[in-house]
Amino acid sequence: MSGHLTEEQYKSQVAAVWKSTLWLSIITVVEVVIALTLGHLIPKFILNLFFVLASVLKAFFIIAEFMHLKYEKRAFIISLGVPLIFLVWALIAFVVEGNYWLHLNFPK
């Protein structure tokens, strides 16, 4: 990481960054286009699932390439990734709760 790159390394890294930029732009444009055109055609659940997956993909490009995490040691990546499991469980538990409140407050 530290120190000085050869010209080839530098060029390939710059190219990788621009490639990620292109991907990020494409995904964003696709998301917006789908939100505008297919918003009323596709079931909301599938649409949201697509948006979530697309956002996670975008997050992957930012973290892996821009934040350079792809090139760090595996143990380091794991140490940052594993705590995110807590957030996934928190999201599940909180949303189950929110859904429960909906049914408590607005019984069908």
Partner: peptide
């Protein structure tokens, strides 16, 4: 994440 999870919770309860 705590903010966004709170957002999801409140939104789904509406």
């Amino acid at each position: 994440s705590a903010f966004l999870i709170s957002y999801a919770t409140i939104r789904i309860s509406q």
